[in-house]
């Protein structure tokens, strides 16, 4: 089972993802596949906040800022929570010099995800909805948005269930339960 979870910043998507994977892991070993790189005090504090939020929930943390399918050398099967696709896309794109194009970035990441999805029984991916501020950014940021947009689109096709988290409330976009109007 593959689940894609999206939402804006501060939407509560991480807390929901952790709660969901604990519910659907069915006693399997739970891994937290962390993609964020430590740059400064702020990223360290953010990583710490997520660690505290996860502590006591039985996750084994694996840090992998790029080339995520490499974790299959360390684990076989189990339940994996990958957080967050927006960091992974930025890492994959901007760690190369010159930066990779949106197409190359998406292709590389989607290849890794397909490999992981083939091995894992439960695979939850958290991504980020960064597309609604109407601001025209510089060319490299727009290229990044394109990459993340097309990755999200493909992931949603692959996933059994897609959930958007809004103010901590899960809205099911794909899967057994659909959004109900008012």
């Amino acid at each position: 089972m593959m689940v894609l979870i999206t939402g804006g910043s501060g939407s509560g998507k991480s807390a929901y993802a952790e709660e969901l994977i604990s519910r659907i892991s069915g006693g399997r070993r739970k891994y937290y596949l962390a993609t964020m790189q430590v740059f400064d005090g702020e990223t360290r504090a953010r990583i710490e906040r997520h660690r505290r939020q996860r502590s006591g929930k039985g996750f084994l943390t694996i840090e992998r800022p790029v080339a995520v399918s490499g974790v299959l050398r360390e684990i076989r099967g189990g339940a994996v929570l990958l957080e967050c696709m927006s960091n992974l896309a930025a890492n994959e794109m901007f760690s190369a010099d010159p930066p990779r194009s949106a197409g190359e970035t998406a292709e590389s990441i989607l290849g890794d995800v397909a490999e992981l999805a083939g091995e894992l029984e439960v695979f939850v991916i958290v991504t980020n909805h960064v597309f609604d501020d109407g601001i025209l950014y510089d060319a490299s940021t727009m290229e990044y948005c394109k990459a993340l947009g097309s990755i999200n689109e493909r992931l949603a096709e692959m996933a059994d269930r897609v959930v958007e988290v809004v103010a901590g409330i899960p809205l099911v976009l794909k899967g057994e339960e659909r959004i109900c109007g008012s």
Binding site: G8, S9, V130, F131, D132, D133, G134, I135, T141, V166
Partner: peptide, 8 residues
Amino acid sequence: DEIGNGIV
């Protein structure tokens, strides 16, 4: 307003 749906 929902303000979190953009580039960080």
